[in-house]
C-alpha cells in the first residue's frame, strides 16, 4: 500500500512539474474573463449562460488534461521505456497501474479545483452584477455538476489506462481514448434518435439499433454525468440520481482498471 501511495505521489509531482497546472491557471483566468464577457451579452438568461460556460470550460480543460497529460504520463512511460526502472523494483504491475491512476486522478482533481474556483468567481461577479437573473441559481446544483464532470473524466482516464495497457504507442492510446469519449458522450443521443422512428413503427435497421445499444453498454455512458442543463437552470436533481451515477462511474472505472491490470500483468516488454 505504501508503494502505491509513493507511486501516486511521484506521479502527482511529475504532473505538477510538467507545468500543466500553470497552463491551467492562465487558462482559468482567461476563461473567467471570457465567461463574464459572454454571459453579460445575453438578454435575460445571464445565469444560465454563466453556468454553461463554467461547466463546459471545466469539461474541456479536464479532457485536455486526461488526453494530453493523463494518458500520456502512463503510455509515455512504456514508450520511453522508463517503466523498466519502476518494474525492476519490488512493486507489482497492478500496483504500478493503480498508483499511476491515483496520481493522475489527483492531478486532474487538483487542476479542476483551481479552475472551479476561478469559474465560481466569475459566477459570483455576474451574480452581483445581475442579482435578478440569478433567482433560480443553486450552488449545490453547480457543485454536483462539477462533481459528476470530474467523475466522467476519471472514467475516460480509466479507459485510457486500458488502452495504454496493451497498445505500443502513446498515439494509439490517445486516439482510442478520444474515440471512446466521442462514442460515450453521443451514444445515448444516437440511441434516442434511432429509437424514436422505431417506436412509431418506421423501419430502422435492427442491426444498427442493436450495435448502438451494445455500444451504450460497452462504452462508458457519459451522458449520465451530464447535469449541466439542470445546474444552469437550477432544476431539481434527485440525490439518488447523483449517487447512482457516481456508483456507475466508480464501478466502470474499477472494471477498466481491473482489465488494465490483467492485460498489463501478461504483457511482455522487449
Amino acid at each position: 500500500m505504501k508503494a502505491l501511495f509513493s507511486l501516486a505521489a511521484i506521479t502527482f509531482k511529475e504532473g505538477i512539474r510538467s507545468r500543466t497546472v500553470y497552463g491551467i491557471l492562465i487558462f482559468a483566468i482567461f476563461l473567467m474573463f471570457l465567461n463574464v464577457m459572454i454571459s453579460g451579452m445575453m438578454m435575460q438568461d445571464v445565469a444560465k449562460v454563466a453556468v454553461d460556460m463554467a461547466l463546459s470550460s471545466l469539461n474541456f480543460v479536464g479532457l485536455l488534461l486526461v488526453f494530453f497529460a493523463g494518458v500520456n504520463l502512463f503510455s509515455k512511460d512504456i514508450e520511453r521505456k522508463t517503466i523498466y526502472m519502476v518494474l525492476a523494483r519490488p512493486i507489482s504491475r497492478s500496483r504500478y497501474i493503480l498508483g499511476k491512476f491515483a496520481g493522475i486522478s489527483a492531478i486532474i482533481v487538483f487542476s479542476l479545483a483551481i479552475l472551479a474556483i476561478f469559474e465560481s468567481a466569475s459566477i459570483v461577479i455576474m451574480k452581483n452584477g445581475y442579482p435578478a437573473q440569478f433567482l433560480r441559481f443553486s450552488w449545490s446544483a453547480l457543485f454536483f455538476s462539477f462533481l459528476l464532470t470530474l467523475i466522467s473524466l476519471i472514467v475516460v482516464l480509466s479507459t485510457g489506462f486500458l488502452f495504454a495497457s496493451f497498445s505500443s504507442t502513446s498515439f494509439i492510446t490517445l486516439v482510442l481514448s478520444i474515440v471512446t469519449y466521442l462514442i460515450g458522450s453521443s451514444a445515448n443521443e444516437v440511441k434516442a434518435l434511432l429509437e424514436v422512428p422505431h417506436d412509431i413503427g418506421e423501419r430502422t435497421s435492427p442491426l444498427l439499433l442493436y450495435c448502438v445499444k451494445a455500444a451504450c453498454y460497452i462504452f462508458p455512458n457519459l451522458s449520465l454525468f451530464d447535469i449541466k442543463t439542470e445546474a444552469a437552470h437550477g432544476l431539481f436533481v434527485p440525490l439518488s440520481y447523483i449517487l447512482s451515477s457516481i456508483f456507475y462511474g466508480i464501478l466502470y472505472s474499477f472494471v477498466m482498471l481491473s482489465l488494465s491490470c490483467i492485460i498489463f500483468k501478461r504483457r511482455e516488454f522487449p
Partner: peptide, 11 residues
C-alpha cells in the same frame, strides 16, 4: 455533435 455541451451550443 455537442458531446454533452448542449447548453453551450444553445448559447
Amino acid at each position: 455533435s455537442s458531446l454533452g455541451n448542449k447548453g453551450l451550443f444553445s448559447d
